[in-house]
């Protein structure tokens, strides 16, 4: 039979080694349980480590996109409220215009109607100057100085970014941006005396377009001693066109909102999935780890017990 010559140093070294291994396994498990993490450095599990880093990247981005979407949604809601009020104003104006066209309306009624229309003009101007936070939302890229101003009483000028280059875009997912504002110029229009100071040959004239032009023209006409009813009737058609513009803008806002809502729910799904992946990569399975810990404790106790018995006996005990 083969046998190994067991020397005292052999035995003690063996025992110490085994105890060290058992203890380090135990400490490792204890650390895992107290931190709740399976890996503390990439080499603990390279694939899991990489997956933690890359899910962290994606989660950070998603968090940011969701924040952008929330902001954009609030901003769009503010715009939507403004548009609803505008639609009401246009309705009221139409009623007032019909009253003015009524054969029984005399100069006194005209004055009253005009006063109301002036109120509406003021209201539409204020709606154009709606703010979200500290930003004027209908000024395009020019969010700070007031976009709709009255350089002269009875005129309203739009000072914001021109229609077409007005879009402020936010990023709502990788490489996808979405505009969060409408052109104030397109929705509300303007009507003011253009100041051609650089060109003395051109006379200063009232110019503009859209709702505000219609409203101001109407008001100016009503202020005339004998308002031209045909002109007023024409304004009624213009009001319909302007109404359509506002309605179109409203539906644009609606589709932007629903796009945001859809992206948001996709991102939230992604967020949930990624969190699961990350947790699977770095978190411990508590039940499994605790039972491993108990197993390891038993192993340590057993090896301690066996070691104490192995060290003791020698021939000396029997001499």
């Amino acid at each position: 039979m083969q046998f190994t010559r067991i020397t005292n140093r052999y035995t003690s070294e063996n025992i110490v080694n085994n105890l060290l291994i058992n203890r380090s396994k135990l400490v490792n498990l204890q650390e895992q349980i107290s931190s709740g993490k399976r890996i503390t450095k990439p080499s603990d599990d390279v694939l899991a480590g990489i997956s933690v880093v890359s899910t962290n990247n994606s989660l950070g981005k998603i968090e940011n996109y969701l924040k952008n979407i929330d902001n954009a949604q609030s901003e769009l809601e503010t715009a939507e409220t403004a548009l609803l009020t505008t639609i009401d104003s246009v309705h009221t104006t139409k009623e007032l215009t019909l009253q003015a066209l009524n054969a029984s309306s005399g100069p006194e009624e005209m004055t009253i109607i005009n006063a109301q229309i002036k109120q509406i003009i003021e209201q539409v101007k204020d709606l154009g100057n709606t703010k979200y936070g500290s930003k004027f939302i209908f000024g395009g890229l020019q969010t700070e100085p007031t976009p709709f101003t009255a350089p002269v009483a009875g005129e309203i000028q739009y000072n914001g970014s021109p229609d077409g280059s007005h879009e402020r875009r936010v990023e709502i997912s990788d490489g996808v941006t979405i505009p969060v504002n409408l052109s104030g110029e397109a929705v509300f229009g303007e009507y003011y005396t253009a100041d051609w100071d650089s060109d003395v040959m051109t006379p200063d004239t009232l110019d503009g377009q859209g709702l505000l032009k219609t409203l101001i023209s109407l008001s100016n006409e009503l202020a005339m001693p004998a308002p031209d009813k045909d002109f007023i009737r024409q304004q009624l058609d213009s009001l319909d066109t302007d109404m359509q513009t506002v309605l179109n803008a409203q539906s644009e806002l609606g589709s932007l909102s629903s796009r945001l809502e859809m992206t948001k729910s996709n991102l939230q799904d992604d967020q949930l999935n990624l969190t699961k992946i990350k947790s699977g990569a770095e978190d411990i399975d508590m039940a499994k780890t605790i039972s491993e810990l108990q197993f390891q404790q038993t192993a340590l106790q057993a090896s301690l017990q066996v070691s104490s018995q192995v060290i003791q006996p020698s021939l000396l005990d029997y001499m």
Binding site: P42, N56, N57, N64, N68, T143, E144
Partner: peptide, 29 residues
Amino acid sequence: VNELDDTGLNKTLNDFYNSLSQLASNPND
């Protein structure tokens, strides 16, 4: 080079890009 915790380069890069994205919506702020 610890990128698994909340203090690494990855995390600080993320914060930087996110704040730029916020700046894009609020350039005046």
